[in-house]
Design a protein around this nucleic acid. Structure first.
Length: 469
RNA sequence: GGCGACGUGGCCGAGUGGUUAGGCAAGGGUCUGCAAAACCCUGUACCCGGGUUCGAUUCCCGGCGUCGCCUCCA
């Protein structure tokens, strides 16, 4: 298995720190506003990587942090006249809903910055003790020049950074490159006591401190958006390795590409976004998930209605195939398909390639079914592969069609009272009678009526079947 | 300006030094009362210019273009 490691910008053989165990830290959201489609992509992409690793037999500890204290949360709270906790709680609820609808597995641990202030203070303290940081005017800054390897993750050199850097008013840096580990509290801001006075942590320190706490030194995978490489992840490396020079901070850095809209990156700071929850209302969540998964995780993707229609149609092909097979599948998964799946997934998580294998399975399975042969092994492989990607089949339940259904049934003399599904079965049977009598108009009217309710009737050699659209 | 990524057929999108990715859409056919689904067939794809090679879309150099980072950002 090989992965592209941002640290070194090369493809490397994946060898976890401890055999059979993978420790992952994913940069989670700053719970400041509503999630957009970009947040969803990061979550889905790393969720699939996690599920794949678990499928390969690794025991995965998946940590995703929640940044619940930061300048923008404070500003948003001030603007809206509510407190920071309320801003964070409302935003977190939306992220959580979005992740859940997208089928993202809950993190093993989901630590919040505000619940790990002592750990951060400890780390800051040891950085000061080792001269990698200094207190200044109630703030504490990391001294970038004290860490010679600074820039190794993002491929920057300190001297080049120097020219563009500057010190903002109110900061007390010794060097423009230095960044805040601890910010002195201003009036009205949330704050915690510290050896340097009341204040709050800088952004970067939480990930170094919390990953250390839950995953230890030299954990396996640190993941996040490609836009976090600099400065966030660069700073994390510097802090963590300066505080613990004995071992590298983490072994593999994985970064996902951005979601673009009209050719430009979605970004909450510019308002150039499509809300995640809005998209999940407009499109089936599994189709949104598939939209993310069609493109390799490191590449940018363009969000367009056409791309979504495409994803919806592709998904329908998947499930149209799966609907053809009823009853339990007992055959072992087709080995050739599984081998191909494993090969592409182990090749820097080529999920687009994996989808190619899945669609090949669909064609082969359909061909076998048409030929009257047993597609068991292909179906078993299909089920296994789609489970790894977590592309769940839609609910077959009727949902909210009940009212129109009773009316339609009545029109054909079918008594309400039994369950909705029985009603549909009765209507399908009525259509079958009409077909037998060659009353095509009636048969088609029933089918059209059901279609209008979102129930699709399809004829097969074994009789008519129906499913929810 | 510095650093980095990318440029594949109508659209999306994997991949490879020489033999089919895949999806969506389109055309033809089979099946079917019709429809849907499905299967089969079709469309001579790799930004441009050099170079390496028996052979490059696939490696190297240059150019053009798009995007990202260089401030907060998944």
């Amino acid at each position: 298995m090989e992965v592209f490691n941002t640290l070194g910008r090369t493809r490397q053989v994946f060898e976890p720190r401890d055999p059979g165990v993978v420790t992952m830290y994913v940069c989670g959201p700053t719970v400041q506003t509503s999630p957009h489609l970009g947040h969803g992509r990061a979550a889905v992409v790393f969720d699939v990587i996690r599920r794949y690793l678990e499928w390969e037999g690794f025991e995965v500890t998946y940590v995703q942090n929640v940044t619940d204290v930061d300048d923008k949360i404070i500003n948003a709270a001030a603007e809206r006249g509510i407190d920071c906790d309320a801003v964070a709680a409302a935003s977190f609820a939306e992220f959580d809903e979005g992740y859940r609808k997208l089928g993202v597995k809950a993190p093993t641990i989901e630590p919040r910055a505000t619940e790990h202030i002592p750990e951060m203070i400890d780390m800051i303290g040891s950085l000061i003790a080792s001269d990698h940081a200094y207190a200044s005017g109630g703030d504490v800054y990391f001294s970038v020049r004290s860490f010679p390897e600074y820039g190794k993750l993002s491929g920057r050199r300190i001297d080049e950074l120097e020219s563009g850097a500057r010190i903002d008013p109110g900061e007390h840096k010794q060097d423009p490159l230095d960044f805040a580990l601890w910010k002195a509290a201003k009036p009205g801001e949330p704050s915690w006591d510290s050896p340097w006075g009341p204040g709050r942590p800088g952004w970067h320190i939480e990930c170094s401190a919390m990953s250390r706490k839950y995953l230890g030194g030299g954990f396996d995978i640190h993941a996040g958006g490609i836009d976090l490489i600099f400065p966030h992840h660069e700073n994390e490396v510097a802090q963590a390795e300066a505080a613990h020079p004995d071992a590298p901070f983490c072994r593999y850095w994985l970064h996902n590409g951005m979601v673009n809209l009209a050719g430009e990156k979605m970004a909450k700071s510019t308002g150039h976004v499509v809300g995640l929850l809005d998209a999940l209302e407009t499109y089936p969540p599994t189709a949104v998930r598939l939209f993310y998964l069609r493109t390799h995780y490191r590449k940018p993707v363009e969000f367009t209605p056409e791309a979504m229609d495409d994803a919806v149609a592709s998904l329908e092909r998947l499930w149209a195939f799966r609907r053809r097979v009823t009853g339990p599948v007992e055959a072992p998964p087709d080995e050739q398909l599984i081998d191909r799946f494993r090969a592409v997934m182990g090749d820097d998580f080529d999920v687009a390639g994996a989808l190619g294998v899945i669609f090949d399975a669909v064609r082969e399975g359909n061909r076998l079914l048409d030929a009257g042969e047993d597609p068991g092994g292909v179906v078993a492989a299909f089920d296994e592969m789609t489970a790894v990607l977590n592309l769940p089949a839609p609910d077959v339940g009727l949902g909210d069609v009940a009212d129109g259904l009773v009316e339609l049934a009545g029109a054909y003399g079918i008594e309400a009272g039994s369950g909705d599904e029985d009603l549909v079965d009765a209507l399908v049977a009525a259509r079958q009678s009409a077909k037998t009598a060659k009353e095509w108009d009636t048969a088609d009217a029933i089918r059209d009526g059901l279609a209008a309710l979102g129930v699709v009737v399809e004829d097969t050699p074994d009789g008519a079947r129906w499913h929810r659209r």
